[in-house]
Design a protein around this nucleic acid. Sequence first.
DNA 1: CTGTTAGCGCTTTCAC
DNA 2: GTGAAAGCGCTAACAG
Lengths: 293, 293
Amino acid sequence: VPNSLARSLVGGQSHTIGLIIADMANPFYSKVTQGVEETARQHGYSTILVDTHEDDNDERQAVQVLRSKQVDGIIIHPAQASSDHIAGLLQLGIPTVLVNRYFPGLEIDCIINNNRHGACLAVRHLIELGHRRIAHITGPAQISSVCERISGYRQALEEAVIPFDESLIIHTALGLQAGCETGRSLFQSGLDFSAIYVYSDYLAVGVFKAARELGLHIPLDYSLVGYDDIEFAEFLETPLTTVRQPMYEIGQRAVLLLIENIENPGHVPGQKKIVLEPELVIRQSTAPPHDGG
Amino acid sequence: VPNSLARSLVGGQSHTIGLIIADMANPFYSKVTQGVEETARQHGYSTILVDTHEDDNDERQAVQVLRSKQVDGIIIHPAQASSDHIAGLLQLGIPTVLVNRYFPGLEIDCIINNNRHGACLAVRHLIELGHRRIAHITGPAQISSVCERISGYRQALEEAVIPFDESLIIHTALGLQAGCETGRSLFQSGLDFSAIYVYSDYLAVGVFKAARELGLHIPLDYSLVGYDDIEFAEFLETPLTTVRQPMYEIGQRAVLLLIENIENPGHVPGQKKIVLEPELVIRQSTAPPHDGG
DNA sequence: CTGTTAGCGCTTTCAC
DNA sequence: GTGAAAGCGCTAACAG
């Protein structure tokens, strides 16, 4: 077995890529990871994995470590709390691809979802069912996909001439537990709403949990829509209406884009922004509002 | 940023470990992976991930690649279709830790679950509810945990003086889709049984799917027990009765064991077999049999 | 076409 | 103490 470290040292290529992702416990990311790892391996690259838990410090350190390990490129799902470490990669000419999120100011190749449209589909569906007071549980405001989905949410309301109520937008952390706690306080808040559009399926599972603990029924008491269509969405207590993203394909195409950058020396970053179109999947978690039906 | 490749070349340590695992789409493995990656990073190691899809060739190749990348150690969740590549690691003195599965003939450190006891708890619970004809959907017979759980299944039957019926043991692949197809053919087989003990929760989700497609109700028509207690088990259509394994901790302790091997030059492999005790978690997928209650 | 040598970036050793 | 040199395992470029 030849020493690939020595080979990399002289050849200037490590045939290793870095994957920085937020939370492997979320099936969305584990499926993306599967797509990345498998596609990378098919092309002769190994994958170094870092799970940041959406922590900016972990992410910055990960970039440092991956640079020192001479990875040929990095795929990042950024926490977006800061961006200079990523700008640094650009300056150094280290091939970088962003997944799901992007920095408006930075010219980096990325593969994202048409979040505005996806959110719009979700909220339109609720409006068509008769909902007018729709809450939105979402993530930290610095994340591009969070903003875009809020924008889609607003667009759907505007189309239906429903006034936008700031108090119905609730920002929280992106985990099942956070979803549960936020759901609980929303349900107990006394706010007037009949449906919730949740940023992701994983977060929505937490909201399910909160509803169950409080003896509330989905969709009889409240309708619920998620985002991602994780594998378990259709098997939940109430099968979840959601907006599908092709998770494996996102990972796959991220790698393909990265490899194109790596093997094309004259590549100009930021030229390729792949935008995937989402698809609404209607299941049983959405129904007409209780008093409106 | 110093070149860690050059440093590794002279220092003989890459501060990188390999993680070979079967299927990242299974939340059991993604949670184990999270434990591995995070713990490794806390101790200054990076993690190269390989997802084998339980494919022996992928696994053998992965070992080769990781060796060439000079990883300091490897954590393997082996497909167990062959073992000489793992025996080779032993001979070369490359620190190796097995998770969840082991080879009776090979002296390797491992971290496993008391599978026999876990399966016994699951089946005993079904027997206590009044079931006597209990099917068992499980994985390929070469896998140690598959054998041990069958053994636990048989033990519980023996304790209750229930005859063992070979035809109620069904071997299949370890995926949600395989679980669905196997469940479907089992339900349509005309075999006499009132409960199913399934090898893993992920597989059990597939059985749920089959039941739903056939209009069968869990637990009214059939009781179902899984294994692992993946995060989604409690949120399924019918919350799943299962046997809990501490997934994150398994990953964490696997790394701790590996690092102990790496940093202890005089280490004799196979001395440390950590056996974790499982715990039965009773939810709503199990109930007394339809005609027996 | 085979064989030798320089050097990738670093650490460790040895001389000064 | 500081500084030069050797060498980790490999590939590339060279000479024979």
